[in-house]
């Protein structure tokens, strides 16, 4: 039952992260939220795996932990000099 509570906490945080991602205002705030969301997902998956009593599904969380970085780094690589051009202005 404790895991249910934990997972609820994580879910709530995910909602908060999404709220931040939508609110912005800058691109970096969104990125931060996205990144946070990713790590929370990994956490959530680990917890759910426990909750459902199938610890062998931790692989999934492991995969998240490993993959999550790539997205953020990709942003950096492809937009090293471009975000400032039109990124910040778009705090819609």
């Amino acid at each position: 039952m404790i895991f249910a509570g934990v997972s609820c906490a994580i879910l709530v945080t995910m909602v908060l992260a999404i709220a931040r991602a939508i609110k912005g205002p800058t691109v970096y705030d969104r990125l931060l939220a996205v990144n946070m969301f990713g790590t929370k997902t990994a956490l959530l998956l680990a917890v759910i795996a426990f909750l459902f009593g199938r610890a062998d599904f931790l692989d999934l969380a492991l995969a998240y932990a490993l993959i999550n970085l790539v997205g953020v780094l990709a942003v950096l690589e492809f937009f090293q000099n471009r975000i400032d051009a039109n990124g910040d202005a778009s705090g819609d």
């Binding site: 800058t26 970096y28 990125l31 931060l32 990144n35 790590t39 990994a42 956490l43 680990a46 931790l58 969380a61 492991l62 932990a65 490993l66 999550n68 970085l69 953020v72 780094l73 942003v75 950096l76 937009f79 090293q80 000099n81 975000i83 400032d84 990124g87 910040d88």
Partner: peptide
Amino acid sequence: AIMLFLLLTGPTATYALANSALLSGH
């Protein structure tokens, strides 16, 4: 292992973000 990886990638991602924000003039 998951924890280790999360602790390794988490700050790295944060750094990357903060750094790119900084470099782009934010």
